[in-house]
Amino acid sequence: MKNVKVNIKLNGRKFEREVEPRTLLLDFVREFADLTATHMGCDTSNCGACTVLLDGKPVKSCTVLAVQADDREVRTLEGLGEEPLMKRLKEEFIEKHGLQCGFCTSGMLISSYSLLRKKSDPNEKEIREAISGNICRCTGYHGIVEAVKSVKGETAREKLPESPELVRR
């Protein structure tokens, strides 16, 4: 079985590696690129702890092969840390008790972030729908929804800037 070269623009930087085709994007990110904000929860495509952005859209990296991301752009939570919108979300997650153990949090943040990038003023139903692929065993979701609600609208009002490569979607 032949290895294949995978070249991913990972958090804005080129990252190339020869891998077995069966390598999951989750393992590519965690084991090869040492980016451990992306978590493995269920490993069965159900929990969303492994959420990353693939070409700007959130996906479950435990259910994507690294080869599928070849020549594409992947963002993990590490690569979004400097985004003003992400900073605000993190502040509000802390403020509104949007996390307890923190295991689901990177996925929750990425799903919430991409919702707000798509729609700056979502209603509660839309917020709950956007995080419906992410399971939290601790918070009961209320704090998470409240956190997203406190940030919503800010993107439009204050025109939070975003890095250029995240604009294309």
Partner: peptide, 13 residues
């Protein structure tokens, strides 16, 4: 690590 599939070859057409 996530559960890894058995080995296979891969071709992107």
């Amino acid at each position: 690590m996530g559960s890894t599939p058995g080995k296979f070859d891969y071709l992107k057409v």
